[in-house]
Structures are given as C-alpha cells and as structure tokens.
Nucleic acid binder design. Structure first.
Length: 346
DNA sequence: GAGGCGTGGTG
DNA sequence: TCACCAAGCCT
C-alpha cells in the first residue's frame, strides 16, 4: 500500500469516526497540545481529561505555569502518577517563558520531559508540521499492519517502526493524520479485541491476513516484581493534625508530601523519642498493598495519638502538621490520600 | 540496554 | 487476588 493510499484511508476514517471533542482540541494551541501530550504519556485519555481541565483553569497560559510554585503544580498533578513529568513540565515552562515556544524537533526535545514522540506530536498537531510520532498506539497499528515481530522496545524493531512511521506520515493534513492514527490505535486497533472489521486498513493489514493480530505487538518478557515492606506513621496531635514529611526531589513520589516511613514497627518508639513526641495511644492498622510499575509495596499504617511540645520546631520546610480535613491543596501520593479519606469517614 | 518511575481499570 | 496494560522519558 502506498503512503498516499494509507493516508487517504486513514483520513477518511478519521473524518467519519475520529475523536474531535477532546478538551485539548478546542482550541488548539502549542501550550495546550504540549501539556496534554505530557499528561498522556503512559496514561489513558479518560484519566487525563479532568487533570487537563484543572491545569488549564489554574494556568491558562504557559507563563502562569512557569511562575507558579512547584508545590502548587505537584498538588494539581497528585494522583496522575509519574511525578517527574510534573517537575519537568514546570522546568520546561520556565524555559518556554524565557525563550518562547520551540518549533523545531531539536529544540522541543531539549525541553525536559519531551522525547522524540512527544515532540513529533506537538509539531504535527499544534503546528501542522510534518513529523512522525511513535507512541504505543502507533507501535501497535504499524507492528500489525507490517507484521513486525519482536519486542517493539528493542533497538532494531524500534528503528524499523520509526522508519515506517516516517514513511507513512504525510506532508499535508499532518495534524489530522497524527490524531487519526492514534485514534485508530485507541478505538479500533486495540490491544485486546481489536475491531478489524471496522478498520480502514484491513484490506492490506499483514497481521490480519495471517491471523496474527492478537500476537502483535510482541509483549516484553515480563519479570516478577519484588515486594517491599514498610511502616507508615500516622501521628496525630491534639489539634487533629497529621505529621507529614517532604519527600526528596527525585525518586518515588519525588517532591510530594507523605507520611513518615520506618523499616519495621519495632522502631516506632525510638522514632517518637527522636522527634520529641509522647505517644498516648498506638493503633496498628491492617497491612495494605500498593503496586507500582516496578514493585509491590506492602505498608503497615500505625496510628499514633501524640503530644508534641509547644514550639516543636520541625526541620524548616521538610515537616508539617497537616489538617487533612481541611484544604486539599497539597501533593499527596494516591495511597496516602486514600488512607486519609478512610479517616474522614470516621 | 535495562531499570526507575504511578495509577486505575480490566479480565 | 493478581498480572497485565495505557498517548514515554530519563539515567
């Protein structure tokens, strides 16, 4: 199938069945497309929509995002995951505010958090410039259409797919084309139960012809992920406030606020002594599991009712007493938020 | 190249 | 309950 034919079929399908009412499509701007593409990294559309709307409401322009404190940005991002994206977004916004919005592949990839595929998406969708993308949807569509076997993350297969993606990317109507091929992957050429009978490319799809659609793209060999254990301290003072700690700027939940952590529950009293807290009551809650992409976390919440001396100066900026029943404008990891929600019900 | 980095939905 | 998955990027 020629690229022209491929594009024609895809665009005709898009005009009929593509998604044209996503929040970042009205209106289209470089800032809105960039923001949405970063949020959509490894994240589904339905999850992103409310976060995108919150961000646009709070930060209508990139300048307002650039001038916001990182803590505020993280608090809006809380729950969306992969928090390096928020930290990079903020850093990139500052660069854009100073130097203007980049309009070339090289300058876009220079932004933190923007790789080749995100850059291609911004250039094609926001500027209608002819650049290819290779996200999960496009990988799946192209791997099937051209019957490319082998894990698509491997360098050889990866290069092959980029070449194919560039080969099919048109000069005209690139914005629609890019949206079209992603939409096709998201709604027709899905990982499980693909709707091949509705596909505009079915007549030339090699995987369909050989009945190998369900085998492609080849999944990565899965490894067993480890289990880590720790104790979360829920220390509540007489004002009903809970002690929170600021996490390091990088690593898991980087830059967010979380509960103090201990390796095991024998360390609780030593921990309390260290922070000059007198324990009045101690309750061990049921162990729960939170699963990350790369490990399981089995955490045992231990609730402590404590007295803390007046003027108990916490390390500046790294510890706070937090009223979880009130304002929520603080960045908490999802499982911590869930834990607090359970408390509120009582 | 391989591993770190979230979360919620699904079968 | 559990493995797997979804619009990747960075080190």
């Amino acid at each position: 199938m020629t690229p022209e034919n491929f594009q024609l079929q895809l665009l005709a399908w898009f005009d009929q069945s593509g998604r044209k009412d996503l929040p970042w499509q009205h209106p289209i701007s470089s800032y809105r497309v960039w923001l949405s593409e970063v949020m959509l990294q490894q994240t589904q559309v339905v999850t992103v929509i409310p976060y995108f709307n919150k961000f646009i409401k709070r930060y209508p322009t990139v300048n307002e995002l650039a001038n916001a404190p990182l803590d505020d940005v993280l608090s809006l991002w809380a729950g969306l995951g992969y928090y390096a994206r928020a930290r990079n977004l903020h850093k990139a916004a500052k660069q854009i505010a100073k130097a203007g919005f980049p309009e070339t592949l090289e300058s876009l990839v220079d932004l933190p958090g923007v790789g080749r595929s995100t850059a291609g998406a911004v250039l094609s969708i926001a500027f209608n410039k002819s650049h290819a993308i290779l996200d999960g949807n496009v990988r799946r569509v192209l791997a099937r259409f051209k019957l490319i076997e082998g894990w698509t993350g491997g360098s050889a297969v990866n290069k092959q797919l980029w070449d194919i993606s560039e080969y099919f990317t048109p000069d005209a109507r690139v914005a629609d084309y890019t949206q079209a091929i992603m939409d096709l992957g998201a709604t027709v050429c899905t990982r499980s139960k693909p709707l091949c009978l509705q596909c505009p490319l079915q007549s030339d799809c090699l995987a369909l012809a050989q009945d190998k659609v369900h085998l492609l793209p080849t999944p990565k060999l899965s490894k067993k992920i480890p289990v880590k254990q720790l104790v979360f301290i829920i220390a509540t003072n007489k004002n009903g406030e809970i002690l929170l700690e600021k996490r390091p700027p990088t690593g898991i939940w980087g830059g967010l606020w979380s509960l103090p952590e201990l390796e095991n529950k024998q360390d609780v009293s030593a921990w309390a002594d260290k922070h000059q807290l007198v324990i009045h009551k101690r309750t061990e809650l049921k162990v729960k599991r939170h699963t990350f992409s790369h490990y399981h976390l089995d955490y045992a919440p231990i609730q402590l009712i404590v007295d803390s001396p007046t003027n108990n100066v916490m390390e500046a900026g790294l510890r706070i007493w937090y009223k979880h029943t009130q304002h929520k404008n603080i960045a908490l990891p999802a499982p911590i938020n869930q834990l607090f929600d359970e408390f509120k019900e009582e």
